[in-house]
Amino acid sequence: MAAGSKKVIYAALIGNGLIAITKFFAAAYTGSSAMLSEGIHSLVDTGNQGLLLYGLKKAKQPADEKHPFGYGVELYFWAFVVAILIFAVGAGISIYEGIQKIIDPHPITSPIVAYVVLGLAIVFEAGAWWVAYKEFNKVRGKRSILKAVRDSKDPAVFTVLFEDTAAMLGLIVALVGLLAVQILGLPWLDGAASVTIGLILAATAAFLAYETKGLLVGESAAPEVVDTIRNLVEATPTVSRMNEIRTLHRGPQDVLLALSVDFEDRLTAGAVEEAIYALEVAIKRQFPIVRRVFIEVQATRHHREMLAAERAALDPDA
């Protein structure tokens, strides 16, 4: 999904950069608080796309002595930073500017300029949103958008998709705010539109922070992947019982797999080694995203004893 992620990010980066410049020009020319909020929003989005690209680049670094499992989590970290920036910078400044305009309203000059800029921005933003939506749809399948985001292990695409969605909503709010100012003659409505844009950004940031936090803390592979691996191991003739399976996404295309397996007692050490090798090859062939496989040879009774000891250590009062 890395190629798709970069395509989405580059499209958003170019679009938001051009839109930000245009919005700031229009805000300075018209004095619109909502337009200034939109300019800040686009500038923050442009910086965010740069951070996501940096995260993708860092995630590709090979494993080394200091980071033996690689740098895949870098992408998750920078996606979380993006969510924080949307909240702290985008939402914070928009709400502040809006409150200032409500307290001290002043008329908007040359609103036609603002309308032209908003119209162009909606067209450009819609194009960037469509690119992100198409890439997201490639992996969504028949799932709902919310379910697909919850299941997704690639924050780059859904972060840009939700950023662009928030941008589209913000543009519509800014347009409605300008129209309301002209029709009703109430300049403070421009500030109210700015506050509304800030609240949209805050809600988007909170959702993205929640989703990326889960990835950063560590999420398991998709249930169908786990079930297939479980069935594959249990169907192996030399396996007496699979005690436990644990998976961890270290990146969108990087899964760490740990297994505890009880092999048949009659097997020699050499036969167990061959069985482990065959299992690892079979798992990686079916799921290339499983980059590292660790198989622990353990009697079932010993595994249960270790689990009990682990639970006792975590909760001594139990």
Results as ranks from 00 to 15, higher is better:
A148G: 12
A174V: 07
G198W: 03
I276C: 13
K147L: 12
L169H: 04
V217Q: 13
V281H: 11
E224Q: 07
G170H: 09
T204K: 01
A202W: 05
S194M: 06
A258Y: 08
I289E: 12
L161C: 05
T204V: 11
F162R: 06
L216F: 15
D227M: 10
S152C: 11
S220L: 08
S260N: 14
G185W: 07
V255S: 04
I276H: 08
E224R: 01
A166V: 00
L259D: 08
L256W: 10
E244I: 03
L199Q: 14
L259F: 11
T228A: 15
L201V: 02
A282F: 01
G185A: 08
R246Q: 13
A271W: 06
A205I: 01
E219S: 09
L232Y: 08
D151Y: 08
E274Y: 12
A269D: 06
A193K: 05
A222C: 07
E244C: 02
D151C: 11
E211K: 01
F158Y: 15
L279C: 14
G251N: 03
L146Y: 12
V261E: 07
E244V: 00
K153P: 01
G185L: 04
Y210P: 01
V255P: 07
L179C: 01
V160G: 04
S194A: 14
L169E: 10
V176I: 15
I172T: 13
G177M: 02
I276Y: 06
H249T: 12
E219H: 06
L175I: 01
A235C: 12
F294A: 12
G170M: 06
I229M: 04
V293F: 10
S240N: 13
V173G: 08
G218Y: 11
P155F: 07
N243H: 03
Q253L: 07
T228C: 05
L189R: 00
L232A: 10
A148E: 00
A156S: 15
L186K: 04
E274D: 15
D190V: 10
I172Y: 03
I172G: 06
T238W: 05
K213T: 15
